[in-house]
Computed example of a mutant assay.
Amino acid sequence: MTTIMITGANGQLGSLILENLRSRIPAMHIIAGVRSAPQADHFRELGIEVRKVDYDLPESLEEAFHGISRLLLISSSHKDDDVRLAQHKRVIDAAKQSGVRHLLYTGFAFPQQSADRSKPGNVHTMTEQAIIESGLEYTFLRNALYIDFVGVLGLKEALSSGELVTAPGGWKFNSVGRRDLALAAAAALVEEGAGSRIYELTATHTWDFADLAEVLTEVAGKPVVHRQDEGIQHWIYAFMSQLDTASTSGDLEQLMGRPVTPLRDSILPFIV
């Protein structure tokens, strides 16, 4: 049977994927790749083998990937994209040398292409290109912006004041929660059949800040209105402007086998 490894297994997304994977295949066929093995005892208690996977230690990666059929590379969280790309390439090289048959990678949904072909893309598109050039069979899991971004919008304050204030713009969002993305990733990890695939893992319909205000109104039991204010300054808006947060796809629901979690349920953890 196929042996599957998830790197970054101690992270929020990785641990959720492992949780979903356990309901699909026996624990003996799952391997948790972690940077700090002593912090992974909870996986061992579930019968899951733990191996040290440090993107900065290339000499250890080939050994860690030995006997792995399908490897999920969860993108590095390092803040320097040059470092991230170097880390990813070490994993790709080691996977090929170790005989991994299929490499899965988590990037961003609907990556924007630069009009200037001479300029390199972002870290995710360059990682995808490196995987393609490796000759490995691949699956690109292009995740929408995590719904977590609402945590910086002052939702609790909006419930109290009756006003959700955001920076100006025609913002639309295809965002979903990690639990939905993890369920889809687990399904992709156990997919049968050969060949490479690309999944755009987004909501099937966009929502905007007016929709968010409606949900807050429902939760609060009193009106919450949305207002734009040019004085609002936060790094999240500059970050979101670099992403395609408006395009949608049915890939996520197809992999999950159910609809995406409703907006109301997705934001509840950020307002309770």
Rank of each mutant, 00 (worst) to 15 (best):
M1F: 05
T2R: 14
T2K: 14
M5I: 09
A9S: 15
A9Q: 02
S15H: 02
S15E: 06
L16E: 14
I17E: 04
E19N: 15
L21T: 05
R22F: 00
M28A: 15
M28N: 14
I30F: 09
A32W: 05
V34T: 10
V34E: 00
R35D: 00
D41S: 13
R44I: 12
E45Y: 01
G47H: 03
G47S: 03
V50D: 13
V53H: 00
V53T: 13
V53G: 00
Y55N: 01
D56W: 02
L61C: 11
E62C: 12
E62S: 15
A64T: 08
A64D: 06
H66T: 12
S69Y: 04
L72T: 09
S76H: 01
S76A: 14
S77H: 04
L85A: 02
L85H: 05
R90Q: 07
R90H: 15
I92E: 03
Q97M: 03
G99M: 03
V100N: 03
H102N: 11
T106L: 02
F108Q: 11
F110T: 10
F110I: 08
P111S: 11
Q112H: 05
S114E: 14
A115R: 13
D116C: 04
D116I: 09
G121P: 10
G121N: 10
M126R: 13
Q129V: 03
I131L: 10
E133V: 00
S134K: 08
S134L: 09
Y138L: 08
T139S: 15
F140Q: 11
R142A: 09
A144G: 06
D148T: 12
F149G: 09
G151N: 15
G154M: 06
K156P: 03
L159H: 11
T166Y: 08
G170A: 13
K172G: 07
F173R: 02
N174W: 09
N174C: 10
R179S: 15
D180A: 12
A184H: 07
A184V: 08
A187C: 05
E192P: 00
G193F: 11
G193P: 10
R197I: 05
Y199D: 01
L201A: 08
T206G: 02
D211N: 15
A213R: 04
V215S: 09
V215G: 10
L216M: 12
L216T: 11
G221C: 01
G221I: 01
V225T: 15
V225M: 10
H226A: 07
R227S: 09
I232L: 00
H234S: 07
I236N: 09
Y237H: 08
A238N: 11
M240V: 07
S241C: 00
G250T: 09
L255I: 09
L255F: 06
L255Q: 06
L255C: 05
R258I: 04
P262L: 12
S266M: 15
I267Y: 02
V272N: 14
